[in-house]
Simulated scan of single mutants.
Amino acid sequence: MDKVCAVFGGSRGIGRAVAQLMAQKGYRLAIIARNLEVAKAAAGELGGDHLALSCDVAKERDVQNTFEEMEKNLGRVNFLVNAAGINRDSLLVRTKTEDMISQLHTNLLGSMLTCKVALKTMIQQQRGSIVNVGSIIGLKGNSGQSVYSAGKGGVVGFSRALAKEVARKKIRVNVVAPGPIEQRWTKSSYVLTSLGQCCE
């Protein structure tokens, strides 16, 4: 069976490093980001026959269309990585409601929507693996990041519950919670080692 991996948020940071790892392991990849040109650049760096797509993970129709496009061009997705995320740091009393909503929609709802669509195929195949990227901030909290912490903490709880839902279908759901990274970050041994173990 083809090894097909969808990396949401695969154009930069952790997602980009994950895509590099998965390409080395022989996966055919879909690099998904809001900005299509940036996704194309990241996919092009990997060499091989990889796909670049644009998607807003907070919009269910976008997510559904993206999976349809992946299945049409790469085959059924059997490995999903959710690394898409946004951060709008601010003290809660200064945070605009629309910024709260956008963070929660991207960081938490987005992972829920991609998992929901991916699972339909994985359940049919009776196999699959999902890795959701949380954050240490979601476990310990941090001043000025209460909304971000809520979203990433939600990803942890969601992943744990989902793992119990789908284990009997031979589908694994894991969550990794890395610490802060620099903008020019390219590798994290902790995250990549964890992902390498999850995809075997």
Score class of each variant (00 low, 15 high):
residue 139 L to C: 00
residue 123 I to Y: 15
residue 94 R to T: 06
residue 177 A to T: 15
residue 169 K to M: 14
residue 90 S to H: 12
residue 149 S to I: 01
residue 97 T to V: 11
residue 184 R to E: 13
residue 132 N to G: 04
residue 152 K to T: 08
residue 178 P to A: 00
residue 180 P to Y: 06
residue 148 Y to A: 02
residue 98 E to N: 13
residue 131 V to M: 05
residue 117 V to E: 08
residue 106 T to P: 09
residue 115 C to I: 10
residue 190 Y to Q: 14
residue 151 G to E: 03
residue 196 G to R: 13
residue 166 V to I: 10
residue 119 L to E: 02
residue 187 K to I: 08
residue 107 N to T: 00
residue 137 I to T: 14
residue 193 T to Y: 12
residue 155 V to W: 00
residue 147 V to T: 09
residue 155 V to M: 00
residue 159 S to E: 00
residue 123 I to M: 14
residue 165 E to F: 02
residue 148 Y to M: 00
residue 91 L to E: 13
residue 193 T to E: 14
residue 129 S to Y: 11
residue 92 L to K: 11
residue 174 N to L: 01
residue 167 A to D: 11
residue 147 V to N: 05
residue 122 M to F: 00
residue 128 G to C: 01
residue 97 T to M: 10
residue 95 T to H: 14
residue 130 I to H: 06
residue 192 L to M: 13
residue 94 R to P: 07
residue 172 R to Q: 08
residue 156 V to N: 11
residue 137 I to L: 06
residue 156 V to C: 07
residue 138 G to A: 05
residue 89 D to E: 04
residue 99 D to N: 11
residue 124 Q to D: 12
residue 180 P to E: 05
residue 143 S to Y: 13
residue 127 R to T: 14
residue 155 V to Q: 04
residue 152 K to S: 08
residue 180 P to L: 02
residue 141 G to I: 01
residue 140 K to Q: 09
residue 176 V to I: 02
residue 177 A to Y: 12
residue 129 S to P: 11
residue 183 Q to K: 15
residue 95 T to V: 08
residue 163 A to I: 03
residue 151 G to K: 02
residue 123 I to K: 15
residue 101 I to E: 14
residue 148 Y to P: 00
residue 156 V to P: 11
residue 176 V to S: 02
residue 116 K to S: 02
residue 130 I to N: 02
residue 176 V to P: 04
residue 159 S to N: 06
residue 170 K to C: 11
residue 159 S to C: 02
residue 177 A to E: 13
residue 152 K to W: 06
residue 179 G to W: 03
residue 190 Y to A: 13
residue 156 V to Y: 12
residue 93 V to D: 14
residue 166 V to E: 08
residue 97 T to E: 14
residue 93 V to L: 14
residue 133 V to L: 07
residue 192 L to R: 13
residue 161 A to L: 08
residue 90 S to G: 08
residue 164 K to E: 06
residue 172 R to L: 05
residue 132 N to P: 06
residue 102 S to I: 06
residue 173 V to L: 03
residue 99 D to I: 03
residue 144 G to D: 06
residue 99 D to S: 00
residue 159 S to L: 02
residue 139 L to H: 04
residue 139 L to A: 02
residue 111 S to L: 00
residue 101 I to R: 15
residue 126 Q to L: 00
residue 173 V to I: 07
residue 175 V to Q: 06
residue 139 L to F: 01
residue 179 G to C: 01
residue 157 G to D: 00
residue 124 Q to S: 12
residue 89 D to P: 06
residue 101 I to D: 14
residue 154 G to Y: 01
residue 93 V to K: 15
residue 122 M to V: 02
residue 185 W to N: 14
residue 92 L to T: 07
residue 173 V to H: 07
residue 160 R to Y: 04
residue 172 R to F: 05
residue 127 R to A: 12
residue 161 A to E: 10
residue 112 M to G: 01
residue 178 P to Y: 04
residue 185 W to D: 11
residue 115 C to W: 12
residue 174 N to S: 04
